[in-house]
Simulated scan of single mutants.
Amino acid sequence: MEVSAKKRQAVEGKLAGKVALVTGAAQGIGEATARIVHHVTILDCSEKDWDTAWNVNIKIIFFLCKQAIPNMMANGGGSIINMSSVVSSIKGVANRYVYGTTNAAVIGLTKAIAVDFVDKNIRCNAICPRTIDTPSLQERMKAHSTSKKMEYETFIARQKMGGMGKPEEIASLCTFLASDEAAFITGKEYVIDGGWTL
């Protein structure tokens, strides 16, 4: 993602002196999460599928937050931004049983942390996107479709606003939630889905 110097300065200004933990970002956890979308119902879900999804989607966030919160408390506060999905407690989707279940758990974990540490100046929010046009999405479309164009058009057809979300749009929401502009916001899930859940 190419970022202009002017935009970079604006972002750095908003986040100057801030401590923010963003779980499930574009690499590492986020990359692993983006590639693990089991296409199963409860009847098709193996114990291995269940364990893998829980380890990647929720257990890693648990460990990261558990390590980060004491440091945030020692430094006077901070902001935790967890990546979930609209496929969660927000909306059920066919054949996304374990994916939806674990993303619902991310929202629950977010709210629990928010209420437990609100008096410590630690905010915790979740971002719940729908389809975001990322390299990992392109790889999944290529792996699961005989026609990349047809698969892309299928994804576009599901979006009420047309097109897919952009990583920059998620980054802008992360910047806002980590900044002082969001100082009075905690325990919320932010849907960024092009109107899909309307």
Rank of each mutant, 00 (worst) to 15 (best):
T131F: 05
D133T: 01
D133L: 10
T134W: 09
P135R: 00
S136C: 09
S136Y: 10
L137S: 11
Q138T: 12
Q138I: 09
E139I: 12
E139W: 09
E139Y: 07
E139S: 13
R140Q: 14
R140M: 13
K142D: 13
A143C: 08
A143R: 12
A143F: 06
H144W: 09
S145V: 03
S145N: 12
S145Y: 05
T146M: 14
T146E: 15
S147I: 07
S147P: 15
M150Q: 15
E151D: 14
Y152I: 07
E153G: 08
E153F: 02
T154K: 13
T154N: 13
T154C: 08
T154S: 12
F155V: 13
F155Y: 12
F155W: 11
I156H: 10
A157V: 03
A157F: 08
R158T: 14
Q159C: 09
M161G: 08
G162R: 01
G162L: 04
G162D: 11
G163Q: 03
M164V: 11
G165K: 01
K166E: 12
P167E: 00
E169C: 05
I170T: 05
I170R: 02
A171C: 07
S172V: 05
L173R: 04
L173W: 06
C174Q: 06
C174M: 12
L177Y: 02
L177H: 03
S179G: 09
I185S: 01
I185T: 06
